[in-house]
Design a protein around this nucleic acid. Structure first.
Lengths: 225, 225
DNA sequence: CGCTATCCAATACAGTTGACTTGGAAAGTG
DNA sequence: CACTTTCCAAGTCAACTGTATTGGATAGCG
């Protein structure tokens, strides 16, 4: 056998080039030639690693999802089950007011960090959100991409629900009425998704989005007394 | 002068053909020829009414937005200021538990009707949401489309905020802490947007989305006592 | 050294795209 | 009846699309 190159590494390089383009021009305006140019390789080489465009798109989506998952996990020191996103993005920023602790930070802190991490607050996470939006638009008409979301989102919701249950047990949750953790988790995810949308559209600033998220969290965790 | 046809009517016909396609295939896969075929006219005729593709897209967006606004207004009997959407959709269904009343239905009922009307609960509103999603994906990279959202969404938020203020004055709002009507309005819009997203992706059913929206409303309007 | 499997650059190809041009039919006005 | 303006069908155009093919450079194995 000849040269033997690292296939996965090559595919990753190409996926990152795709990411760079999708963040600025969107996903549907992306041609194979453009991706090849951005990755600084020939079209022939790109086609050697991805026989079809859809194959490339799907690989790139899974790649950014796994990156997002890893980043969240690392940031939290793997406290419980693992989150994952089906089509949105996370990023790197945000404060961690209680980093040194025995059993890790409180559920509220973890939750807030995850959710804030999903908002487009800096350039990096903004590009991530743009790519996520591009994938969403495509997924709506693509059964295979839909399936990715149908797997990832419930997983993320379960993760959040577990955090909420933890807070509930500690009595940190506003519980005038008993609220359903999974429902609240999906509400949180939907909320962040919508906040991301309107931030990307320029309807609100990232700071406003974060403040609104905090307002919701504040109500959710309102001193139960 | 010759034939003199109703320009606006022709353009509307074309916009509706575009809508039909965008709801099934998305917006980026739509060519002028396809729209012309769907509208059962020649490409030449289409180009006579829209000199450029972007012109057609923008007109179609404004058209569906004005339709949505009119529908909401009619459903509510024009209680206050007028709502409008920048990129999502409403539809026709939902109950109106208190249709015959002097000053109209309560703020909560109006709010719930509007929000539920924005969710993709039947085929018609589902297509509307798909078109909205397609426009969102494009708007993110198109300054002109962005501008539409930057005008429409705050208008809708103001409308909702006014409803919330009305409820607040009646003492119908959960107000352990005083909550900011505009913030809550944007939270509601974002929430519905996210719920719409995940319903379109098949992560949840329309019924589940509605139940989750109701859970949020229930908490918002919790008996302030 | 051959040999062969891998890698990949170049090119070709059939199809589609948005925009433009041309030419003439229809119809109200003078 | 001209005449002019609106309307619009047909065709052209260059650009670009995803995919397929061809041919050869490279390098590990026998």
């Amino acid at each position: 056998m000849p040269k033997r190159v690292d296939h996965e590494a090559r595919r990753t390089e190409i996926a990152e080039a795709l990411w760079r383009i999708a963040g600025t021009r969107g996903l549907d305006g992306v041609s194979l030639r453009e991706v090849a140019a951005e990755a600084d390789i020939s079209l022939g080489r790109l086609q050697h690693y991805f026989r079809t465009k859809d194959e490339m798109l799907l690989f790139a989506l899974r790649h950014i999802n796994s990156l997002a998952e890893r980043r969240i996990r690392e940031r939290l020191g793997a406290p419980a089950a693992g989150p994952d996103r089906g089509e949105d993005q996370d990023r790197g920023e945000d404060q961690d007011p209680d980093p040194e602790q025995g059993p890790g930070p409180s559920p509220r802190v973890v939750l807030r960090a995850c959710l804030a991490g999903m908002l487009p607050l800096d350039e990096k996470s903004r590009v991530g959100a743009l790519v996520g939006a591009a994938y969403f638009a495509r997924a709506v008409h693509d059964e295979r991409l839909c399936e990715e979301a149908r797997e990832g989102i419930p997983r993320l919701a379960e993760f959040f629900a577990a955090l909420l249950r933890g807070a509930q047990e500690r009595g940190e949750l506003a519980a005038g009425r008993a609220l359903d953790p999974y429902t609240e988790a999906m509400l949180l995810i939907s909320l962040v998704d919508g906040l991301t949308t309107y931030t990307l559209l320029g309807v609100q600033t990232g700071e406003e989005a974060l403040a609104r998220l905090d307002a919701h969290l504040e109500r959710l965790f309102a001193d139960a007394g």
